[in-house]
């Protein structure tokens, strides 16, 4: 416990404290031109402590301070009914649902592709280069087009966003699972052959269990980028709900606080999702007797 405190907790705390200090200093520096203009316009004499206090509490600051963002979060997360359209919980839940759907679709697709690649040689040779090439297409950049095109054929709402998330999420899962399904040693495969095990049995008894330690790290990456995909998919014109739409409307109306609050909620969501997958990883490996 003491070891953990000094080895990890203290350094991380120091770094975070340093970030907060730099943040407040930067807020003074970045917000002061506007504040000085205001003083000149109002014809007030100002002192340094007054300038500092005012730059930290502007209405539409260039860089809002942490306590301002916290105030905004308090207002839109805790002190508002979650069903209200102005509540961030409402928007977060919309983004979350398309993230989860896209993540599930992407994971299933990635696993299926990996199984195909491991078992069919021609798929291995012809598909793998294209899977890698598929990720150099900046899908995030064309996400708005996909939304519009799918909207033209009557698909709107959750599914198009989930499709973009799944396009991003399938890649790490496919790559990780190919590696994982190939991870059993030749010795083990030979042993199962001496048992005259069917391909089905080899898959479920050997390949699948040995691929699980590869699946979970891949899923951690996948869920993080699934969230990014869902947020960007909410950017295009017409999106009225979701964290991405919140970013966009905050940008249009110059509401910096709204942008930062949405960003913080997105960050918290990402952290939560990644740690849930990490927890599931530990649980499964522990149940299978593979925990270290």
């Amino acid at each position: 416990m003491i070891g953990w405190l000094t080895r990890t907790f203290l350094p991380v705390l120091t770094v975070l404290a340093a970030i907060v200090v730099i943040w407040y200093a930067a807020a003074i520096w970045m917000n002061q031109p506007f504040q000085r203009d205001t003083y000149v316009r109002q014809g007030v004499d100002w002192t340094l402590p007054q300038l500092v206090r005012d730059t930290w509490n502007q209405d539409r600051p260039v860089l809002p301070t942490p306590h301002q963002i916290w105030g905004e979060l308090e207002r839109t997360v805790f002190n508002m009914a979650p069903t209200s359209r102005r509540s961030l919980v409402y928007h977060a839940q919309i983004t979350l649902s398309s993230t989860l759907l896209g993540f599930a679709m992407g994971t299933v697709l990635g696993i299926l592709i990996a199984v195909g690649i491991v078992h069919v040689k021609s798929l291995d040779q012809s598909l793998m280069p294209w899977i890698i090439a598929s990720q150099t297409v900046p899908i995030l950049a064309i996400a708005p087009m996909i939304i519009v095109v799918l909207g033209a054929i009557g698909l709107s709402g959750l599914v198009p966003k989930a499709i973009i998330s799944s396009y991003l999420a399938f890649f790490p899962v496919a790559v990780g699972m190919v590696k994982g399904l190939r991870s059993p040693e030749v010795l083990h495969l030979d042993l199962l052959r001496t048992y005259s095990a069917s391909p089905w049995q080899v898959f479920w008894r050997l390949r699948w269990p040995s691929a699980l330690p590869f699946l979970f790290p891949a899923m951690r990456v996948a869920i993080a980028i699934a969230l990014v995909g869902a947020i960007v998919a909410e950017l295009p014109t017409g999106a009225v709900a979701g964290l991405g739409a919140r970013l966009l409307s905050g940008f249009y109306f110059g509401q910096t606080l709204q942008i930062w609050a949405a960003l913080i909620v997105a960050a918290v969501l990402a952290g939560l999702l990644v740690s849930i997958v990490g927890l599931a990883n530990r649980l499964v490996l522990w149940r299978m007797g593979m925990s270290r």
Binding site: A224, V228, L263, A266, V274
Partner: peptide, 9 residues
Amino acid sequence: ALPIIGTAP
């Protein structure tokens, strides 16, 4: 792991 792209605006 954060959606850094959100800093674009």
